[in-house]
Design a protein around this nucleic acid. Structure first.
Lengths: 247, 247
DNA sequence: AATTCAAATCTTGTATACAAGAACAAGTTC
DNA sequence: GAACTTGTTCTTGTATACAAGATTTGAATT
């Protein structure tokens, strides 16, 4: 698809799934040839990607797919924890009855998510319905705007999750926690929400695991150049200055 | 200043201070003549403004300064309440001593804010130091990233506050509340934070006041056209479709 | 062989011409 | 007079040529 929205979606997807690895160069001219479109609209797409943290722009030098920034991940997890604790507690504590339609919608989403587990290599589908579940909670609380705001800074967290899911099959665990959350809402049991949400979102911010297995994807504090190091993790990395901010 | 950053800052400022009123047209060609720069970099600026909610883009029709959206205002107030309650409580409850430097910095900011009150027509200065106070709290808690994220959706809230400050001289009240908050932090008094922050941020979401006095700046649900209405509030308003989203 | 310096070649940034949708106005038709 | 048509003139969207910084290349020099 050669429309701007299509290209944006395509590139986002490739970056999230790590087809485009952190550090990859996204040259305007190369992309314009690939998508058969001129540089002008393509620059709009790159601007948007930069804004969402998918790429870092180095003026007059080039655009690199951003390295996963664990700091950003932690900030987003914190933000979502705080927010979702409150949102879900409100849904659970509500005196007026939660619309039945909402409950049914959530159940349907969890069914789809369970279905995704049964298929192999359906991580993307699983994550899609995972997002759908959380977004539906925001929606029921009338907070879609905040969900959308968070999504604008989701590039690092989304990739972190994908790497994390590879670790062990915690898909079942995540789904179970979703079921627990829904149960609490239905049963008006606001007490357990805090711990549930905290555990659910924080997973185990297992920096160690990522560092060991995916160091080449991470945005690490500048490591001093060790000489004669043949480790593959350090390969292909270049010194990077800081990207320009947008504000 | 004819640099992109300068133009962006300039337009932002003019929109926030209502020099550019909601509904005003920002034509690319007109702006390019005004700033003596070509349309290309100017479009980048407009894109950014659109992203931050300062303008609404109607494809192939034009760019309008956005009307203040009370829904957005409420969402941001909610978000900030939730966040700042937790952030400030953590600062107040901290076992490890809060860096003295932080306390001093906050005190200094409040001094500047008090100074701004003493001068007349110093609303902008007052608001500048008001933001500085809250941002400093985020910074002390290590949450600047989240502050910046919120700022990206600040166009409506910021203008709402400006209109609100005109109502009565609540400047003193705001400053007093800041002092109370700082006191709580210094005295490790986390108990009162919740109520303090809620009251401080919610002010009184006085939609009624804004509706009566500044209806022409607000993004209202489509009102049926009343005939033969000479009220100035309805003047110059045009039917507006919805602007395109960015995602 | 290592260093220096300049030119070639990358990259993005800017200006501008042209394309095309949207709104408006005037004239035509009924 | 009302509805339709058409042409003009707005607007932004796109393509492309050119400008200018950053990097690399490679030859000349020491």
């Amino acid at each position: 698809m050669s429309t701007k929205a299509g290209i944006l979606q395509q590139l986002r997807s490739e970056i999230l799934t790590l087809e485009l690895k952190p550090g990859s160069i996204l040259s305007e001219t190369v992309l314009s040839e690939r998508f058969k479109i001129s540089r002008t609209p393509l620059r709009d797409v790159l601007k948007q990607l930069a804004h969402e943290g998918y790429i870092d722009v180095y003026p007059k030098r080039g655009n690199l797919v951003s390295y996963i920034d664990l700091e950003s991940v932690e900030q987003i997890i914190y933000l979502r924890s705080i927010l979702e604790k409150d949102i879900i507690k409100n849904l659970a504590a509500q005196n007026v009855s939660l619309p039945l339609r909402g409950i049914l919608e959530l159940r349907e989403i969890l069914n789809k998510q369970a279905e995704a587990i049964r298929q192999d290599h359906a991580h993307e589908a699983f994550l899609f319905w995972d997002d759908a579940f959380h977004k539906a909670l925001f929606a029921l609380a009338g907070r879609v705007l905040l969900w959308d705001l968070i999504q604008q800074s989701n590039a690092h967290y989304a990739r972190y999750r994908r790497l994390h899911l590879l670790k062990k099959e915690k898909l079942e665990e995540i789904l179970d926690e979703h079921r627990l959350i829904l149960e609490c809402i239905v049963n008006r049991d606001a007490e357990r929400i805090d711990d549930l949400v905290r555990h659910h979102l924080h997973e185990d911010i297992n920096a160690a695991y990522l560092l060991e297995n995916f160091a080449e994807y991470l945005n690490l504090p500048r490591l001093e150049a060790r000489e004669s190091d043949g480790a593959s993790a350090a390969h292909g990395r270049k010194a990077r200055g800081e990207a320009e901010a947008d504000g």
